[in-house]
């Protein structure tokens, strides 16, 4: 598959086989923006409402004008999980990894993992910045937490899954 980012290192989490289709008509603007380091998401061209990724018409003003544009890459954690199951051949990380559902300041919601390996998921409500990791050469959004923001490992997360 062709790539949108050249000469990138290997992802900390996933095998390159999980690269998303950067030319998928639905999300091509997101991937093109991510390759430039911009978080590009859809909004209503008429009233500006943040739209879901698959939304084709505005639920507030009924406009079908969908505009993909860069938004502020910041938000807060809506929910989070630490995934212990690591499918052989797909997950290259050797420790449990976080998946975070982020409420962006732009009004959008987006599910992502973290930019760097992190042993546990950030707490709900915690502020995050959005950066980008590269999976098989395709840039995808990832949550960035400063070292000071790392949440402590709760007791239920302390076991190691074989």
């Amino acid at each position: 598959m062709s790539t949108t980012v050249a000469d990138v290192g290997e992802d900390w989490l996933l095998d390159p086989a999980l690269a998303p289709n950067a030319h998928d008509p639905l999300l091509a603007p997101l991937y093109a923006g991510a390759a430039r380091g911009e978080l590009v998401l859809p909004s209503c061209g008429a009233c500006g409402l943040a739209l879901e990724l698959e939304q084709r018409a505005c639920d507030r003003c009924d406009s079908t004008d969908v505009v993909w544009a860069a938004v502020v890459p910041a938000g807060a954690v809506h929910s989070a999980t630490t995934v212990h199951r690591r499918e052989r051949g797909l997950v290259v990380a050797t420790e449990p990894y976080p998946v975070v559902d982020v409420e962006l300041d732009s009004g959008h919601r987006l599910v992502m993992t973290t930019l760097a390996p992190q042993r546990s998921a950030p707490a709900i409500g915690r502020a995050v910045r959005i950066g980008f990791r590269s999976v098989g050469g395709v840039a995808v959004p990832a949550a960035e937490l400063s070292a000071a923001e790392l949440s402590p490992v709760p007791p239920s997360d302390t076991e190691v899954t074989p």
Binding site: L18, D24, L53, R85, V91, V111
Partner: peptide
């Protein structure tokens, strides 16, 4: 596809 690339398997 995007979520799978984020570890949602």
């Amino acid at each position: 596809g995007l979520e799978r690339a984020s570890g949602v398997l």
